[in-house]
């Protein structure tokens, strides 16, 4: 034991401060307190939730309802993937039909995008979640450009209105958005959520028992035909139509997988693959019931599309890879509000 001060006492303290301070700086840097480049998940969700935060609700696609049913596999995908739910069997799922936007009370018929999200009950050891939307492709290729797109589309804080000049400038500056804008200008919203086509948009890999990877996209293709009859008007027009329709029997979709050819770029979500690509009907989604989302089975689920079972893998698509962190941040915010009892109610 040394009772006297060691030599170079100041230098010794300086070294301690440098080591501890350096580590503290490193941790602070990782937490984003110092600098940082690129768009973060927090900035993304801030933008999505808009100026008015609807506590307890998803920050994107806030308005929706829960559905439940089962997936009846055809077995057609079995040679391409080891995922057990594509063997010839039936797998229950919980899902959610929703419309785009951060407002949980938005009028159904005004939403530009509709979506179907599914969470398959593969067991306690596996999960498969997918969030499908009406557009077949993205307008942009990177999360940074997607951030700019959402910024251009966001209503002005003062006027509450969108700026058409800003929007057209954005699409002019992003020629990769052509397939998306072509789709958007031809898209006719259907009269029912049961007659829409919902797309995975991003591509994924199926992996079979031999380790072979096949790039795929999928879509939920409605079995019911579009009648052309407009739903009764009202804020919840599509919701009411769907619940009424279910009273007459299950709502069905074919789950159709499109297999990429080697020349197709699986990592680019802006480019559609040619119509001639091979398609396989993996099975049928049979929706038997629907419930409001408040307290419903889908409410607590984050439909992160990177939750994949064995036999499926993500591509290197940068938008797909960014979705996990953004979904997690949105989930964190609303779950926290529910835990603290601060969640609001829709319809106020």
């Amino acid at each position: 034991m040394n009772t006297e001060n060691p030599p170079f006492l100041v230098a010794r303290y300086a070294l301690i401060i440098a080591i501890v301070g350096g580590l503290a700086a490193l941790l602070t840097f990782a937490a984003g307190g110092l600098g940082g480049t690129g768009v973060t998940a927090q900035e993304f969700v801030d933008l999505q939730q808009g100026h008015t935060v609807h506590a307890g609700f998803r920050r994107a696609h806030a308005k929706g309802f829960c559905v439940a049913g089962e997936f009846v596999s055809s077995g057609a995908l079995e040679p391409h993937t080891t995922a057990t739910l594509f063997a010839s069997q039936t797998t229950p799922f919980v899902g959610r039909l929703s419309i785009a936007g951060s407002n949980p009370t938005a009028p159904d018929l005004k939403a530009p995008v509709r979506s179907l999200a599914l969470s398959f009950a593969v067991g306690e050891r596996e999960a498969w979640r997918t969030a499908m939307n009406t557009p077949p492709v993205m307008a942009v290729r990177t999360p940074e450009d997607f951030f700019l797109q959402l910024s251009a589309l966001a209503p002005d804080r003062e006027s509450g209105k969108r700026d058409p000049g800003k929007i057209s400038r954005f699409f002019d500056e992003h020629p990769e958005s052509k397939a998306f804008t072509d789709w958007a200008s031809n898209y006719q919203p259907t009269g029912s959520l049961a007659t829409e086509k919902y797309h995975s948009i991003n591509a994924f890999y199926l992996v079979n028992s031999g380790g072979k990877r096949q790039a795929v996209r999928w879509q939920a293709r409605p079995v019911a035909r579009e009648t052309g009859i407009r739903p009764a008007p009202g804020r919840d027009a599509l919701h009411r139509e769907f619940f009424r329709r279910l009273g007459q029997g299950p709502v069905k979709f074919d789950l159709v997988f499109t297999l990429a050819a080697p020349e197709d770029d699986a990592d680019d979500p802006t480019r559609p693959w040619p119509q001639s690509r091979r398609q396989l009907v993996a099975g049928q989604l049979v929706i038997n019931s629907a419930t409001p989302q408040a307290g419903g089975a889908c409410e607590g689920i984050s439909f992160d599309p990177l939750v994949l079972p064995h036999g499926m893998e993500p591509t290197r698509d940068p938008i797909l890879r960014a979705r996990s962190a953004a979904y997690a941040e949105s989930y964190r915010r609303r779950a926290r509000e529910h835990w603290l009892g601060r969640a609001g109610e829709a319809g106020e």
């Binding site: 937490a31 927090q42 993304f44 290197r316 962190a325 953004a326």
Partner: peptide, 23 residues
């Protein structure tokens, strides 16, 4: 633990393509 702390703090913010692997 230091790696876990750094990875955890980074992955909850990052939208980079390596985020899912880091998670």
């Amino acid at each position: 633990l230091l790696s876990l702390l750094l990875a955890g703090l980074t992955m909850v913010r990052s939208l980079e393509p390596w985020q899912p692997a880091l998670l």
